[in-house]
Design a protein around this nucleic acid. Structure first.
Lengths: 199, 199
DNA sequence: GTCTATACGCCGATAGAC
DNA sequence: GTCTATCGGCGTATAGAC
């Protein structure tokens, strides 16, 4: 019984190490420039076929990564919505999270903001169709109803707000902006919010 | 003599057809999902080795495309700067151009805004290092001096302005915004300009 | 799970006859 | 420039012995 638990723990450890190594490599070199042998070396795995005991194929590794990242983003958005009432506070919470992730988990943010996921996961829905982003649209719509946000096409509003946020984080991730994300947080938040707020 | 001209025209026709087909395929499927046989079929070419009479290899096709697009962007920016005095008018000219290109030459804009060029052209400078973008930064700095634009880090200012512009055009290109770019031009320009303008 | 070996396919790139 | 044929290599994926 204990042995079985140990075995499962070991199994999920390897599982996670593969995902972690793949995330790092995909973020740094891109999906197509990363070979399975790269992943095997980066994780602590001895042979290539171990990989196939945990994942059906290379695409599935990327797919699981994708699911994990978007699921946890979705959970975070739920949490932020529960904790805050006003749309401005909810959006601020999401922005805080994204800036923090950029500094503390840059590979995750590169996966989110930079990788062209549909090139290697053609069957996945576009980012805007994921649960987390549908909720963000809802936050925006609620903000319009409450008179906090200018009335306009919600998708366009999303584009203005996160255009500023995402582009700035992309420049941080690529090194074009040389400080860490946190250094740009307050100014960028203000600009993004003013771009959609009712005067 | 005439024959030689004809020959060169024919040669450059094939040359251009290859580039056009490659641009389309790269924009639609990505660089790595596009094989040379795909390009050969899409252009009007009968055999694979003709391709190598015009380009050293696959990477060079992408490289020439990259150069062409950024060169012509650079020329356009020069032209816009010559025609307009105020920074706001110059930026407006650039935005007009980008929206028009999105509707009329979507593949070019996908190459510019969506493709991760450094994945297949690792030796190329980042977008921000190209001549056209250096000039855009200069426009922004001039606008700050003239009191048109809020004083801040020029790269950050660039990020705010083109964050809104680029993200909106990306959503148009991906179909997430269902009208053509022109339908969003005036509202998006206003929002982007207000994000950086001095009140 | 480890290690070695290998099958298989695709793609980039080349060669040679016409 | 066309057409056919092919090489080499890499990367994915599998098989089998331990």
């Amino acid at each position: 019984m204990d042995q079985e638990i140990e075995k499962n723990q070991a199994k999920s450890e390897i599982h996670d190490e593969i995902l972690l190594a793949a995330l790092k490599l995909f973020a740094e070199k891109g999906y197509f420039n990363t070979s399975l042998t790269d992943i095997v070396e980066a994780a602590d795995i001895k042979a290539t076929n171990v990989l196939y005991q945990h994942f059906k194929n290379k695409q599935m590794i990327a797919s699981v990564l994708y699911e994990n990242i978007f699921d946890s983003l979705n959970v975070s958005v739920d949490d932020i919505r529960r904790r805050n009432q006003k749309s401005s506070d909810q959006l601020r919470g999401i922005v805080d999270l994204m800036f923090r992730l950029t500094d503390e988990a840059s590979h995750v943010m590169q996966f989110l903001l930079i990788l062209k996921v549909d090139e290697f996961l053609p069957e996945h829905k576009p980012t805007l169709g994921t649960a987390a982003f549908i909720k963000i649209i809802k936050i925006i719509q609620a903000g319009m109803k409450a008179g906090e946000i200018r009335t306009m096409d919600p998708t366009l509003c999303y584009s203005y707000f996160f255009g500023i946020i995402n582009h700035t984080l992309q420049l941080v991730l690529s090194g074009s902006l040389d400080k860490n994300a946190d250094a740009y947080l307050s100014a960028t938040w203000l600009t993004a919010w003013n771009a959609i707020a009712k005067k």
